[in-house]
Design a protein around this nucleic acid. Structure first.
Lengths: 186, 186
DNA sequence: ATAAAATTAGTACCAGGTACCAAAAAACAG
DNA sequence: CTGTTTTTTGGTACCTGGTACTAATTTTAT
């Protein structure tokens, strides 16, 4: 039995029974446990604990609360180091069912990710933020966030983000952001 | 809080969410891990691995947590009008690819939705928030957020949320939240 | 104040892994 | 047949989420 054949069998076994450990599989396929591990690694099949957890936690669908991308909202303008603009269209998933108003953290997320993107740095982390929600935002509305770097001192940045619906201010936030040098990333 | 009371709470927590480890429970109930183990032993509640396995192998009786799509994180305790606790497990989608650190707005979202949930009101909106990110949080870590209503004045609430990874504070936020009467909802 | 109960701390051990390095075995090429 | 590469195996250190046990400390009750 060659490698490819063994890996196909391994995948089939785990598909039909995710509760098999590497130990089990090594006995079934008559190879060492390490070989099984390498095979799983190549096939990107997660470990036993993970497999059990996904099976256990997934009787339906996962809620997926915030978007997966690195940005919340769509970047429409960016002058790195000085300013940026992004637009977020409010979808029903972002709103509270009872009121159809957007939940505050989405506005925060838009502003925060815009502020971080505006910084001229490989990597940045938010330290402190002070935000104010001026009026509720409803489903269907388009939120335009405008970020302005107010201050730069070493690796510290003060960014002010103002968000509008039409001409109305709906959110104001001040973010203190730290740029992190690439070498500092572990 | 005495032993009997703690054990009742422990049983309730595990009934509604079998995916809590002794570590999680020790943080929720503010006792040592050893105490949790003794309690589980007395209550004859099996260990984490066992619980996950039973849930995984019996897809019928999944207790499903209070993770209504409206919450970010899993609510594990809620005393409406006074306090609440939620746990957020950091997944790769929440992190910045470059650093594997969680983006700040996820911590904000967890804290904000917990704060709003803790308010004794049909509906609540965040007005002002002041947040501070104490240290970066990495993929795989579990963030336990603890909300406490500090003040109630009419329909205004001051809620303080402190988030931990293990015993370390990673986030502190103060939220000024407005309860909205049902009739006021358009 | 003292005994009892409850809690915490610490050790050794286990399963089922990850991550990494080195050695052995098998496959293939010239 | 020898040399190189791929595949497989072995071993170590470390991790989580525990068990099992002992001992010390803290709290509560008498």
């Amino acid at each position: 039995m060659n490698k490819a054949e063994r890996q196909r069998r391994l995948a089939r076994f785990l598909e039909s029974d995710p509760f098999l450990t590497d130990e089990d599989l090594s006995q079934i396929l008559r190879v060492s446990v390490q070989t099984i591990r390498l095979d799983r690694l190549e096939l990107k099949i997660p470990e036993f604990k993970e497999r059990v957890l996904t099976v256990a936690k997934n009787p339906g669908l996962s809620p997926r609360t915030l978007t997966g991308g690195e940005m919340v909202g769509e970047m429409v303008d960016l002058e790195v180091g000085s300013s940026g603009i992004s637009i977020l269209t409010v979808t029903p998933e972002m709103t509270l069912s009872k009121t159809r108003y957007i939940r505050g953290h989405h506005l925060f997320a838009q502003a925060n990710s815009l502020a971080v993107a505006a910084i001229d740095a490989e990597m940045a982390l938010t330290g402190i933020a002070r935000v104010s929600f001026k009026r509720p935002v409803s489903c269907g509305e388009k939120v335009l966030a405008r970020a302005l770097i107010k201050l730069k001192k070493g690796n510290k940045y003060m960014v002010k983000v103002t968000s509008y619906v039409k001409d109305e201010i709906v959110f104001v936030g001040r973010f203190l952001i730290f740029a992190v040098a690439e070498e500092a990333i572990p």
